[in-house]
Write a protein that binds this DNA or RNA. Sequence first.
RNA 1: GUGCCCGUAGCUCAGUGGAUAGAGCGUUGGCCUGCGGAGCCAAAGGCCGGAGGUUCGAAUCCUCUCGGGCACGCCA
Length: 586
Amino acid sequence: MIRDTIHDIIARAVAALREQDEVPNVELPAFDVERPQATAHGDYATNVAMKLAAAAKSAGQKVNPRALGETIAARMRETVALVPAYDLVESVEVAGPGFINIRLKSAWLLEQVGRVVAEGNSFGTITLGRGRRVNLEFVSANPTGPVTVANGRGAFIGDALGSAMRAAGFDVTQEYYFNDSGAQIEKLGRSLEYYLRLARGEADAQKPEEGYFGPYYETVAARMLEGDAGALLTLADDERAAEIGQAAAALIMSDIKETMAKLRIEFDVFFKQASLEPSGELAAAIEEMRAAGYTEERDGALWLTTTRFGDDKDRVIVRSSGEPTYFASDVAYMRNKFHRGFDRLILVLGPDHHGYIARLKAVARMLGHAADDLHVLLYQLVTVKGMRMGKRLGNVVTLDDLYDEVGPDVTRFFFLMRSSDTNLDFDLDLARKQTDENPGLSVQYAHARAAGVFRKAAEQGIAESDWAGADLGMLAGDPPEQRERELALVRQLLRLEEIVERVAVALEPHHLTRYGMDLADAFHLFYDTCPILKTGADVTREVRDARLRLLRAAQAGLARTLTLLGMSAPERMERAEPSEPAHAPA
RNA sequence: GUGCCCGUAGCUCAGUGGAUAGAGCGUUGGCCUGCGGAGCCAAAGGCCGGAGGUUCGAAUCCUCUCGGGCACGCCA
């Protein structure tokens, strides 16, 4: 990455200066290379002089950071002039309290366009992960109903994070854990038994006091009756609820998979909790904990002593009744993941799970791993503004509801606009708009606009082979206003690699949406300022060809960004018919 | 009571210890013979909840405090 090159130049210059005792002889502290907010400050800025001055001060040497900055900057200029690989730097200046601002050469920036076009679909790929294996678990909503916006937020976060981490060089497995056993399944069974009996016209059907109710479950019952679910109603009392629950859960699981597929949320593995017992892994995990001395018997139950590793209380894994708890399955499941050879586990969980982090990290330690091998990514609540009642569950809005309202692309963009650890207020009225006010669409529109120019070019008989080898240096001769917009577009494009890195390191996929908006903005500005095929515009053939090549790079960058977000990159935008308001006036 | 998240423009939110705190929407005012106006330009709008502290430098880190949300089972 470019920033790594800048970092090298700085480190090399400082090392050379230290050999000649021109800077304080202290260990070089960690320093930042960042993009300044103000473009007037150049492409990159570093605080190395201030950091080094601070380190010197604590070692008893007094140094003026500004003067140190001047010394380092001067040496950087020499380094850049000497090393051909560093030929991307235009200027090195000191500003403010000692910042060193680095500006890149326009010619070098323009050359990068060729690289972007050549990399195409793989542009934005970096080697950060070095093939390390990561298990990314998300959604994992119980198969007791449709996925709601509350637990569906993890779907978008997880899927986009997976894409970005793959681009960053990690080997990612995306996984869904179905809790398809236990008391909730029996509860589901009792609820469905009621709906099944209702559907068969049994007037004396008893509605359970607690359960899963709503229009959705009526349809599930109807679909079950298309099969042989009627036979389940004749089962004995002690197995009927569980059997009906299993049958319903299987059907709901297929619905959930369908929802995920519609929203382009991909999973490599659907793991069923119920499989842990027959496979023997549940018993093996409990035994492993016992053999390692991490369990204690108290009150007839078996406790896992998670307090040894920082949890605030121990946890039961086998009840006094002899039944393993849900937490026992968690232990077995985590053990299963580590046995599959993952270096790192990431769990994307909702806000109600924060109390689990300590115990899960304790389990990771008990399984012989570092607490940091397990990362829990918590996201906060979701509210939906603009839709009073969901269509399927009544009081709750589901992902299918949103899909029907605004489609997969806008849904994904809106869910990814916010940081995971802030509440998400889904503005459905804004999401429904098919105008430039809708930020998600404007990114797609930029891509479609680029595609439109290439269509127009084809109509005029201009083929890709005509401009594929165009001299991008031509653009350096453009009028300043146009050149600046072209360069601004290139700069935005080149940021993608840094964005991918940041998303993968900080586990913050929301940066991708913001970047998408920034890139689309830069694109629209370029498009408005720099005519390419416009009739009447005075554009030479050489400039036209160079701009087409830049346009192709922009299109590739936009497509890549959209792909990472799990959105489509349309060749043209088509206005859909306005959808009916969710609460139409009577 | 204990723990976690949040508090930044009218609204919804970005912001990696750095320079003049940004975006989208909304508001106001401009730009339509031309590659798709689903666009562009501009303006107004901020004691970054409050108080201390650390630092050359704090929206960011620490302590306290005030507001809002969530979680704390031999439930799953």
